[in-house]
Design a protein around this nucleic acid. Structure first.
Length: 242
DNA sequence: CGGGTTTGACCCGCGC
DNA sequence: GCGCGGGTCAAACCCG
């Protein structure tokens, strides 16, 4: 069932791989998250995992981590009749452009849509994607205090790739790990100058390609080859198509 | 029975 | 203002 392409480099195995460091990003021949930087800024401290509210985080909107809304929101909600409450005026005053949380997208060659990444996710929605026969799935981290979400969809130009977009930061270690091992893993990933989404690379493998989620274009395209070592550096990719 | 998934309705932002 | 598309909610359903 599981797709060997990603399963072969599953999360748990990465845990045991002492040297996945030169891995993925080196193969891209590009910085880990060149396109994400402007949005998420650098938070090289692991502290952000537990204390996301930094002065510099103003531009990255940490509202989710501390509580996406200052109001109810938590599913514990006192919604009596959802039908009625559905009309709740979410936030009428604070119309701010609803800053998005830092996001990180990448694509992975896999037959299965939902890739194991060490975290537990609950699917909360699925929508048909325009111009695509494949639906987009929405997941939330099941950890109570964690507001991380992720979207999973098929890459239009090559449906053998799954596009995974993470939004937010986990406020907890991966359930499948001991705090210690996960911390070690975090540290290694940081040394990779990995994206602040420490959890992301867990499931990135030889078939993974970081995406520029602003344009929904791959930072590095699989092109016809599909293999990463054949991937063109993102720096040479200005526009995928005209 | 509890937790996860499905699915239709609703909300909201954006472009026309 | 309206329609469309993306995102979310939550009841119903499913499954271990």
């Amino acid at each position: 069932m599981e797709d060997p392409s990603y399963y072969s480099l599953g999360f748990m195995e990465l845990m045991n791989m002492q040297d996945f460091s030169p891995s993925i990003f080196d193969m891209f021949q590009v910085p880990p998250v060149p396109y994400v930087e402007p949005l998420i800024q650098h938070q090289e401290s692991l502290d952000v995992l537990n204390a996301p509210a930094t002065p510099n985080s103003s531009s990255i909107s940490s509202e989710s981590i501390g509580g996406q809304n200052n109001e109810e929101h938590e599913e514990e909600g006192h919604n009596k009749t959802k039908k009625e409450n559905k009309l709740k005026p979410k936030k009428t005053s604070q119309k701010k452009k609803k800053e998005r949380e830092p996001r990180f997208a990448f694509m992975t060659k896999s037959e299965v849509d939902h890739l194991e990444d060490g975290f537990r996710w609950r699917k909360y929605g699925q929508k048909a994607v325009k111009n695509s026969p494949f639906p987009r799935s929405y997941y939330k981290c099941t950890s109570p205090s964690c507001n991380v979400k992720k979207r999973v969809e098929r890459y239009l130009n090559d449906t053998s790739f799954v596009v995974t977009t993470y939004e937010g930061q986990h406020t907890h270690p991966t359930p499948g790990l001991t705090p210690r091992s996960s911390a070690v893993c975090h540290e290694q990933l940081m040394r990779l100058s990995a994206p602040n989404h420490h959890q992301v690379p867990y499931l990135m493998n030889n078939y993974s390609v970081p995406l520029n989620f602003y344009s929904h274009e791959p930072s590095a395209l699989p092109m016809d080859h599909g293999l990463l070592h054949d991937i063109v550096p993102s720096s040479s990719i200005v526009k995928k198509e005209d």
